[in-house]
């Protein structure tokens, strides 16, 4: 199981900040997340970046058990 970290608007859309999700690639983890959290989350995810263990990752990036998959919507710091 990967550790999903949902931040800002992604956290709000999903209703949780951290969760455990099955999947051996970013694509698989995110498909499971979309199925679990629904359309609003999917819309936020569509405009978000994804990091695996703090590094930018693409759909095909591998995900091992206990890896952190973070969903980062467009940022608004400062």
């Amino acid at each position: 199981m990967a550790r999903l970290l949902l931040l800002g608007p992604a956290r709000e859309a999903a209703g949780v900040r951290e969760d455990d999700v099955a999947g051996d690639s970013v694509e698989a983890v995110l498909a499971a997340a979309r199925a679990r959290y629904g359309e609003h989350f999917a819309a936020v995810l569509a405009v978000s970046q994804v990091w695996v263990n703090g590094e930018p990752a693409g759909p095909a990036s591998p995900v091992a058990p206990y890896d952190e998959v973070a969903v980062l919507p467009p940022v608004s710091g400062g």
Partner: peptide, 25 residues
Amino acid sequence: KRTVPMWKREHFPGGSAWSSATEPI
């Protein structure tokens, strides 16, 4: 502003909402 994972909500009379002044990280 473009590289740090940070999100702000604006509080205003009657509610709050995420800032729309965003950029992809």
